[in-house]
């Protein structure tokens, strides 16, 4: 430990590795950018009229949902990469080097956040092109981006845990794609919370994905900031603390 490097310095080097790895893998780019665009277009196509008939303004409300969905997609690669690192033995190799022991975790997160940034910016630009507006000005638009990335960090740390638990990278990718579906479908993302069955409504309203989407919408002008942003921050920061702690433990135990 004494001879090891600094957390941030080593993390930056490993972050560079993670970014190169993403940039050179077409499937990762597809997941981060192309699939969210496809979902954005298709949900607009299929649900816009039906939801607008219910007073649920898709032009303004859908982009934050797709941004959150994109954050899931970018994070899913993380599960695959972690499992792949375990298989290739590079995690064991990192441990034999004089680097900070949590640097691999930081490096991976930097790589994930770089993908998430590209993805969030592209989707939001597409949203603006189809009628979304940041009614509170550019400071809150930056807060929107920051909150999206905070959520991305929480999810990617969680997905990393799947990478440590899964037997193979392929299994990791498959398991990682499962939790996102109920979380995003049973959220305020695509339909108003009031439309869900009564017994389900409280869960839908307060689960982290809904809370984050609502806060993103509030920073763009729809909904109350005080009701949504603190709750979203609490969820995201709480998840980051828990997942990061579990992640560094898993990193130490990983073969």
């Amino acid at each position: 430990m004494t001879a090891s490097g600094t957390l941030l310095g080593d993390g930056r080097v490993l972050g560079g590795r993670a970014m190169l790895r993403s940039a050179r893998n077409p499937a990762t780019i597809l997941g981060a950018v192309l699939f969210p665009i496809l979902f954005f277009v298709l949900f607009n196509l299929v649900m816009r009229r039906i939801m607008e008939a219910r007073g649920f303004d898709y032009a303004q409300l859908l982009p934050p949902t797709i941004v959150v969905q994109a954050m899931f997609f970018t994070a899913m690669s993380s599960a695959y990469y972690v499992a792949d690192d375990r298989r290739s033995g590079i995690i064991a190799r990192f441990r034999s080097l004089p680097i900070h022991r949590s640097a691999p975790l930081i490096g991976r997160s930097l790589g994930d956040l770089s993908r998430a940034t590209v993805s969030a910016v592209v989707i939001t630009a597409l949203g603006i092109a189809t009628g979304m507006r940041f009614e509170r000005g550019w400071v809150w638009a930056l807060a929107y981006l920051g909150l999206a990335l905070l959520f991305a960090l929480a999810v990617s740390l969680g997905m990393g845990l799947i990478g440590y638990a899964a037997p193979t990278p392929e299994a990791a990718a498959s398991i990682a794609s499962t939790p996102y579906l109920p979380l995003i479908m049973l959220s305020s993302g695509f339909a108003p919370v009031e439309d869900f069955p009564d017994w389900l409504e409280p869960i839908v309203r307060y689960q982290p994905v809904s809370v984050t989407i609502d806060a993103l919408r509030a920073t763009a002008g729809t909904g109350d900031l005080g009701d949504t942003v603190p709750l979203a921050l609490a969820w995201c920061v709480g998840l980051i603390i828990v997942f990061a702690a579990l992640g560094s433990r898993a990193l130490e135990r990983a073969a």
Binding site: M47, L181, P182, M185, L186, F190, A191, D195, F196, L200
Partner: peptide, 26 residues
């Protein structure tokens, strides 16, 4: 097994929960 049974079921249940009211109203 997951792709054939669990995933379509999950999709059925979540789509029903989210969109039943809106689509039935439409």
């Amino acid at each position: 097994v997951v792709n054939t049974t669990i995933f379509p079921l999950l999709l059925l249940l979540t789509l029903l929960a989210a969109f039943s009211e809106a689509v039935e109203a439409f």
